Amino acid sequence: MKAIKGVKILLVDDEAHILQFLEMGLINEGYEVKTAPDGHAALESLEKFAPHVIILDVMMPGMDGFEVCKRIKETADHTAVIMLTAKDDVRDRVKGLTLGADDYLVKPFNFEELLARIGARLRNQFPDLLGEVVHGPFQIDDRRKEIKYREEPLALSPTEYELLKFMVLNHGIVLSKTMILDRVWGYDFGGEENIVEVYIRSLRDKLRDKEHRLIRTLRGAGYRVDLI
């Protein structure tokens, strides 16, 4: 994905060489970039710089990344947070995501993967910056709340639109029912999990996906969109 003019990224890390490497790489990609060496500087930049995406290291002296993430989400919930850590520990990842982090990368990481994850966060959280987004046979126009499949507009209810958009934007990733419910129906949804199955069935009908090649079911894990 090419960088979009006007997209602002804040880098937060206490290791100067990492900040320099990421700053140079992201500027070369066309992003507007600011850096912060610690949590306090990050929170100051949050108000002044108003970034779309924050790349946030976990292991920092003083205020760690978890506390910074918590404070960011309390005041700027729309800001996308991608957490970086040297710890390949499931508990750390769960803690970060529970505090509101939108994605997680374990150091060392591939710069191309970071770019892909930044792109995914922009598509998910700032679709107006993108206008129409194309993924394989899908065209998503969030301003018109319209999705086309192979150039043909789909007749979708508002919930079907949000569900298909979420799945297409995260294509190739296994999405559990719980994750889908949280992102599409909301954390306070009090209904049954089988509502997801009902909507998936409806989407498959509208996509003529009788063989489930487009929206795949992974038994015991969830669903995955494969672009075909």
Rank of each mutant, 00 (worst) to 15 (best):
T85P: 02
E23W: 01
L156N: 03
P158Y: 13
D88A: 15
E23Y: 03
D102S: 05
N170M: 05
G220S: 02
G172S: 10
V198Y: 10
I4G: 02
T79G: 01
D77N: 07
V174P: 00
A116V: 04
R201E: 05
Q139F: 00
K34W: 01
S202G: 05
N194T: 12
A36R: 03
D89V: 13
G65C: 06
L11R: 01
H212G: 07
L130S: 09
G119N: 15
P137E: 05
L181K: 11
P61Y: 03
F189D: 10
I18T: 10
L56H: 06
R93D: 03
L114C: 09
I228M: 02
V81P: 02
L11V: 11
S176Q: 07
E162I: 08
E44I: 12
L99F: 11
M179L: 15
R123E: 14
T178V: 10
D182G: 02
Q139P: 00
E151M: 03
I215H: 01
P153R: 07
A155W: 01
M1V: 08
E44D: 14
P61G: 00
E44V: 12
E146G: 09
E146P: 04
Y31M: 06
A76S: 12
L46Y: 06
R91N: 13
P153E: 07
E162F: 06
E152H: 09
